[in-house]
Amino acid sequence: MIEIIADRFTYAVILVLMMVGLYAVIATGNLVKRMVGLSIFQTSVFLLYIATAKVTGGGPAIFDYSDLAARTIPEDAIYANPLPHVLILTAIVVGVATLAMGLALVVRIREVYGTIEDDELSEIDHDDELKKGV
């Protein structure tokens, strides 16, 4: 038990960070703060991916020019796994685009309802439905 966690301490901390983000999403009714919680959760997932790509003693996967000219890399060279880096690089930019999309929806909700607290929003919706007689 102890050695399992000791070998995976970085992952354990990142999982705690993810749970902090999850709590922030659920506990607050404010839509902007909820987007902040989502972005914390998202950043923690990025950290988890990048942490699995880490190889002890390895640097970023960028070759020396001399290795490139020889068209091969030395046997003892250690590099971090480039595949998670690629996935997360694109995910970050897509993440900010979707964050902007969510915030645009929040702004529109504020303009129509006059509030961004979700309990007030459902109250207004409830009153509207009572008025309509649904």
């Binding site: 930019v93 702004v107 504020r110 303009e111 006059g114 007030e120 929003l121």
Partner: peptide
Amino acid sequence: SVTAVIIAIFYAFAGRERTGDTAEG
């Protein structure tokens, strides 16, 4: 594409005026 999208998103947010203060709720 990325530059243009980011500029477009910023213009959309920054050009918006705060409205709806008198709405219900």
